[in-house]
């Protein structure tokens, strides 16, 4: 389980961006992280990935924090960033090879997974190309391919759909469901609320660095005393209050 316990953090000690966040992501579930721009979603993600250290509070994966067992923590988590971040000097295939090396994926497993993913995202013909010649959507696909190649126990996804074509969006959603069935715990940050409502099991609504509402859609509706409204309407109610 990914456990975030009373985490306060930010870019400087004097100015916290997120405040006392407590939530968890268990195996085989998709948790939607929802909030306006600047609500603290990316900061939360950076703390989970270990790119930032919390001022207070703890973050644990299956009982271990990053400091306690760095290798295990890192091997269990895959990440899809909002903005594609790639090595200019590596081709698409080399990105996959590098990821396989970094996560110690056996060669046969790597070849099978990599080829399946390339096929699914229609990237076979581009596998020997350098990413700086790709469109933004294709660059984003590199991030998706590398993350799914790992088949980690947990996945953190930051706005994965920006720039993707409809077929790729369909493929990624399909993969998310498959991985969830295999037991993956997924934290999905997105602004597409209709999609979140359809695919996520639970939600965290973040506003100004604090969790305003959390739980399933029914839980949230109950907390707002509005039993039949959509996630989008719940969200507007929270942020407009």
């Amino acid at each position: 389980m990914l456990q975030v316990e009373k985490v306060t953090g930010g870019y400087s000690l004097s100015h916290a961006v997120i405040h006392q966040l407590t939530f968890s992501v268990t195996n085989a579930e998709i948790v939607g992280l929802i909030g306006l721009n600047g609500a603290g979603k990316s900061t939360t993600i950076k703390h989970i990935l270990g790119l930032m250290s919390p001022h207070t509070g703890t973050i644990k994966l299956d009982g271990n924090s990053l400091k306690e067992d760095t290798k295990s923590y890192r091997s269990k988590i895959a990440y899809i960033p909002e903005v594609p971040q790639f090595y200019e000097e590596l081709t698409l295939w080399e990105h996959l090879e590098l990821t396989a090396l970094a996560y110690q994926i056996p060669t046969e497993t790597f070849l099978s997974r990599a080829n399946d993913l390339l096929e699914l995202f229609r990237m076979q013909r581009a596998k020997k190309w350098f990413p700086n010649t790709f469109s933004k959507g294709m660059q984003q696909k590199i991030m998706i391919l590398c993350a799914f190649l790992v088949e980690a126990k947990y996945m953190v996804i930051d706005e994965p759909f920006v720039g993707l074509d409809p077929l790729a969006i369909q493929a990624i959603l399909q993969l998310l469901l498959e991985m969830k069935q295999k037991g993956m715990g997924i934290l999905l940050s997105t602004h597409i609320l209709s999609m979140a409502e359809k695919y996520c099991d639970r939600f965290l609504i973040l506003d100004q660095g604090r969790i305003k509402l959390a739980g399933t859609l029914q839980d949230i509706q109950l907390q707002l005393n509005q039993p039949s409204i959509s996630l989008e309407e719940c969200f507007y109610k929270v942020v407009n209050d």
């Binding site: 270990g50 290798k71 890192r74 091997s75 090595y87 970094a102 996560y103 110690q104």
Partner: peptide, 12 residues
Amino acid sequence: RYPIWISLYPQQ
């Protein structure tokens, strides 16, 4: 020179 990935890999 490199993107964030090098600090996320399990291999040190």
